[in-house]
Write a protein that binds this DNA or RNA. Structure first.
Ligand code: SF4
Ligand code: SF4
Lengths: 144, 144
DNA sequence: AAGATTTAAGAGTCTCTTGTCATAAATACT
DNA sequence: AGTATTTATGACAAGAGACTCTTAAATCTT
């Protein structure tokens, strides 16, 4: 798997919250509700969303009517932001064979192809905002 | 990381043995020697190479002058064979968000791009034989 | 036959990720 | 004020993957 489980849940939760924020971007969504909709552990999801709030991607609010919401317009949140909040440089600095100290001019046999594919994916995540995905989700009814 | 550590060591060992078999394809290379050259644990590598011999990619021989060698011409061994021996369908059947029961017509928002990048990499592994890499290694002095 | 070398097999350990829980802190409502 | 609701925090348990070690089996050499 390319992403950690935490990262995956984080992306899915962010997408869900972003979709909900289209109708009402001010109110908070309880984590318990998100956990039920995504079918993941409430306890675990709580931990995970804390990293997103610490990264200033989401905001949280305690007490009744509390929960989490996006900290900014979903137009300004890109997938790469969420991924980096969890897996930092672990994904796109990663390499296939895990050799230390590689450079482009001192590569393993697979470096060229890996760099290409990795770069493509990275660009996708850098260019894809939550807003774009929520718009598509409206039309296509994506799975989450 | 895309590949498991076992898979990575397996690929590196296979490359090393394939390179050695250019000069002498009949003799066996002791696992201890491979472990030293690759700078990995001998014990662990022993386990790992057992999966390659079980997959009929390598052959082993016990006793003095024993070790492992490629089971066929390196022209006929493709990276995908080695990868599948370890991570089976875990890599190229894998998905970014890990949702169950996805289909192309019922995807998550990231499915399209992921499928594209994944397919590209898969093709590389399907088309790249050990022989091709050992030839390049001769010219370029790749890292292993 | 005996001893040395080398892989095979299986049990065991370490570490990191994943997941759980109990308790505390903040907020709202009455 | 008191109670219910909801996130925050930190300790803890379970699982998986990575790694180690011991013993057995095969083979060679003398
Ligand atoms: S050359 Fe590139 S792909 Fe190969 S081990 Fe180094 S960083 Fe990884
Ligand atoms: S749609 Fe594709 S990428 Fe998304 S969760 Fe399903 S299989 Fe994975």
């Amino acid at each position: 798997m390319l992403f950690s489980q935490s990262c995956i849940y984080g992306i899915r939760a962010a997408l869900l919250v972003a979709i909900r924020s289209q109708k009402d971007s001010d109110s908070f969504t309880p984590i318990r509700m998100i956990a039920e909709e995504l079918n993941v552990s409430f306890y675990f999801l709580t931990k995970i969303l804390q990293t997103l709030t610490k990264a200033r991607i989401m905001e949280s609010y305690k007490g009744p009517n509390g929960g989490v919401r996006m900290a900014m317009a979903s137009e300004d949140i890109y997938l790469i932001d969420i991924i980096e909040a969890f897996d930092e440089d672990k994904v796109f600095d990663s390499c296939l064979l895990g050799l230390p100290g590689c450079r482009d001019d001192d590569p393993c046999p697979l470096h060229k192809e890996w760099k290409k594919s990795k770069g493509q994916l990275q660009k996708v995540f850098q260019r894809t905002s939550l807003a774009k995905l929520t718009k598509e989700a409206d039309r296509l009814m994506f799975r989450l």
